[in-house]
Design a protein around this nucleic acid. Sequence first.
DNA 1: GTCTATATTCTGATAGAC
DNA 2: GTCTATCAGAATATAGAC
Lengths: 223, 223
Amino acid sequence: MHQHGEARKRGLDMNACSVNHVVMARTQGSHAEITGPKVRDAALRLFAEHGFAAVSMRQIAAEVGVQAGALYLYTPDKQTLLFELMRDQLVELMEAVRPCLDGPAEARLEAFVRFHIAFHHARLDAVFIAYMELRNLTPDNFAEIEGLRGQYERLLQDQLDMGVHDGAFAVADTRIASMAIIAMLTGVNTWFRADGRLSLGDVQEMYWQMVHRMVSVGGTVSP
Amino acid sequence: MHQHGEARKRGLDMNACSVNHVVMARTQGSHAEITGPKVRDAALRLFAEHGFAAVSMRQIAAEVGVQAGALYLYTPDKQTLLFELMRDQLVELMEAVRPCLDGPAEARLEAFVRFHIAFHHARLDAVFIAYMELRNLTPDNFAEIEGLRGQYERLLQDQLDMGVHDGAFAVADTRIASMAIIAMLTGVNTWFRADGRLSLGDVQEMYWQMVHRMVSVGGTVSP
DNA sequence: GTCTATATTCTGATAGAC
DNA sequence: GTCTATCAGAATATAGAC
């Protein structure tokens, strides 16, 4: 227990940490279970606000409430911290989208549109980073992230392909249409805020109508 | 002429600069007329490739072929260099779009769609910076850039409003539709390259068809 | 107009005390 | 597990030689 002298001086038992995560601020002690996630949260927020290259490890440490050196207990370096934030965001995205891939073509596409808007709105910072910080990845890390992004884009294209095959959709080029739809949906994050004149449900509905018109046979939307 | 000793040693006359801008590399001399634009070009390319915060003034200087200190003859600081690149891009955009704002509603919208794709494709680096480096502007500079962006977005919304008023378009919410269309069109820059399977004209045509379907009355596109 | 040299501050990352 | 102290290098920007 010699390494926790500071905590003892303040009358805090180290074991309180594992029992109750709502602990007071302190300047020393062992907090691995909460510090790890805090490092990731702080990095996410700061990278999104200022950009990866503009944020120093000292800034992240200050946000977490530790000294810079302590961050290296949770990440081997700054690059890996960025990469893991991006990878986890995309892995979560791929897992969360799965339930949208069942049913008839039109229902699947509607589910995808509504899902994409809601998921991305709930993760403003992570989405922003995943789209903006590609330049700051090492070549290996970039390749892995691009692979995951490609998988997601491909999901939408596959749905359009199946809908065209069924005769449910009329799309000249499903690759172009999928890129157009994803760009349009992701763009919601640049302007939509929950406290504005429209609810998220309003926005989902309007975007679904626009996408529906875009892909419907003869440009006609059945009632 | 004492300041041009190095140039003389190489058998180059300083006056050749003002007569013929195609000059050999040299390590010293006066090149204000060409160095200014070269600084901006180098900054544009490097900011687009690595991001504003990740690029040093030394890198820009090396790209131009001068020492870092010399850059400060052409910009008061790095921030102003970024701001002016972004502002000039948006001012050019606002001037170039004007010819698209004449004629009947549908023709205007088609012209806008084709223009946006072509203009942005011709300025990959400048567009990339104008969309990605907003975070790195000081508050004053950010406000000015956002104002210009807002003006451009408003142009499209006005066209949709007029088309709806004429009965040419049916759009539930012209603000949302204009944001969706701009995001969709700007997204072309993330994947389209002139040496791919599609020509720029193909892409313009397909995007116009998609936008046309999106805004047409009853979802029906007249032949 | 450009160079060299420099000031000041900050960077990512590590070593060792506790 | 965190802190303090530190290394080696790089950052922006400026001053003065030429």
